[in-house]
Amino acid sequence: MGNQRCCLGRTVEAFVGEYASGKTEVSINRALALNRQNRRVVLLDLDTEEPVYTVRTVRPLLEQRGLEVVSLESHMVFGLGEAGVPVTEEMVTVLRLPGDVVIDVGYGVHGAAALNLIDGLEDEPSLTVYCVINAKRPMTSTPERVARYLEELDPCHKIVNNTNLGRETTREVILDGVEIVTQASRISGKPVAAVSVDARIADDLGLDRMDLGAPLWRLELFMTGKPKL
């Protein structure tokens, strides 16, 4: 029993990256963006390390917005953070669902290898793995560090430049990030797919009128506030 060979031309995207680089925000927004195009989208929470700041914690809100979310449900999980975040059969077989699939992959020393847990992913023709980079995070704050990090992540096809300082993000922060990530892109040979920015900040700074070297993805933020299980 393989994947349903439906949906030729369906999109399967996975978002990997350093801890707290913005993978979850970006993957939620990508899923919503695809959904807005009247496409059926499944958002998979594949974070098996972190008990907070994951898709699971905002699942009810996202379902209200029309997304199909595959994740654990917080109240169903016993001993969160103490007994790990288990994977479920539903998560492993996500590719059998029709429609686009967006995967938020948790961080970890194995990089993108968590994708091995998804049944049939190696046969998926349209899989694109995006590495989310925030150049304001110390471990990915120079072109060399970013390029080295990208090398460790295997596979990784494209970069999403999510450089930000939270609410303190300024035009300078964004432009610095563009410079750093563009250089890293040259060193590593991975293209920059997009520059993602908090939508309110993007509007305030008039970023859509600027040349950032890549398409602008405006983000609605969901992972704000204090951590919750």
């Binding site: 801890y19 707290a20 925030n134 304001k136 995070r137 110390p138 704050s141 930000n164 300082l165 939270g166 303190e168």
Partner: peptide
């Protein structure tokens, strides 16, 4: 000095 975006443990 640098302004960075970090998690507490980090």
């Amino acid at each position: 000095e640098k302004r960075q975006f970090m998690t507490g443990n980090e």
